[in-house]
């Protein structure tokens, strides 16, 4: 029997890829404080996915189109910083969610679709889905590598980056669209809530261990993969939803990291002579 024929093997491969993808983009999301935007994206791509499945075109395409509209909308809105951006993100979130739910409700048997939208269906991942995730991972890694310098410059010092000739608008759009592609890739497999969790929690945990971006990124990828595999194992052992157990594992890693840094800080304080 082919190794890939086993649903659990495919699921394992998918969580490894998804964990790496989430950890990679998560560093940018955490540094730029884009968690709420990511959450809004997970909900806003929903109507695109549903509409695509109703018309019968590729689901991913529907998600990408809907997400791109939202990402560009947010990019336009965040040019004016302040309350309006946060509120507009919230409005997009509500609108996307409501629209998607309304579309789903017109179809029969919709509660199953809705709950798989929330918690994903990792055990039904097809070889084709795996290929897509791997491809997206490669592309995202390339984009982030190529843009590492300007993205870091902008994240650290927007005004200075602009003065040195970096195009803020173009790079903001590149980043938001990259996040969007990751979200669209992750949601069908692992669900909205877990997508957010896999993006934010490993990167936030990694941030606690180091002040160096390269180390943070490597750790985030490691934590993402680790929580994916461990969470999947827990899910098969105790028969709980995989999305939820992976998300809780990622949270656990963050908690341990947080306590670890508290202890390190306390030890560091003690070493300082009084």
């Amino acid at each position: 029997m082919n190794w890939w024929d086993d649903a659990l093997h495919r699921a394992t491969a998918e969580v490894v890829l998804a964990g790496a993808l989430g950890g990679l983009i998560g560093v940018q999301v955490v540094l730029r404080r884009l968690s709420f935007f990511t959450m809004a994206l997970t909900h806003a791509t929903f109507p695109g996915v549903v509409a695509a499945s109703i018309i019968g075109v590729n689901i991913m395409l529907g998600g990408v189109v809907a997400g791109a509209v939202v990402a560009l909308g947010v990019a336009a809105l965040t040019r004016r910083r302040g309350q309006d951006a946060a509120a507009a993100t919230g409005v997009l979130l509500s609108a996307g969610f409501a629209l998607g739910a309304a579309l789903v409700a017109t179809q029969s048997g919709f509660s199953r679709d809705l709950s798989s939208f929330l918690v994903g269906s990792i055990l039904t991942v097809s070889p084709q889905d795996l290929l897509t995730t791997a491809l997206v991972l490669a592309v995202v890694a390339l984009v982030l590598l190529a843009g590492a310098r300007p993205l870091t410059q902008i994240a650290f010092d927007r005004a200075g980056a602009q003065a040195s000739g970096v195009s803020l608008g173009a790079w903001d759009i590149v980043l938001l669209l990259t996040i969007e592609v990751v979200v669209v890739t992750l949601v069908p497999a692992v669900g909205t809530i877990l997508a957010l969790s896999l993006i934010v929690a490993p990167a936030a945990a990694a941030r606690l261990w180091s002040d160096r971006l390269a180390v943070i990124t490597a750790l985030a990828v490691l934590f993402g993969i680790g929580s994916g595999v461990a969470g999947l194992w827990v899910s098969t052992q105790w028969n709980v939803a995989a999305g939820a157990s992976i998300s809780l594992t990622a949270t656990g890693i963050l908690l341990v990291s947080w306590m670890g840094t508290r202890l390190r800080m306390r030890a560091g304080l003690k070493r300082v002579p009084a």
Binding site: S197, V200, A203, A204, L208, A241, L248, A250, W258
Partner: peptide, 24 residues
């Protein structure tokens, strides 16, 4: 130590996941 939006996201996903684990 953890920026407030990341903390909010983690609390959201963790609590919701607990709910999902319970119902699932």
């Amino acid at each position: 130590r953890i920026s407030d939006d990341a903390a909010t996201a983690v609390v959201l996903t963790a609590m919701f996941s607990i709910g999902v684990v319970l119902v699932s």
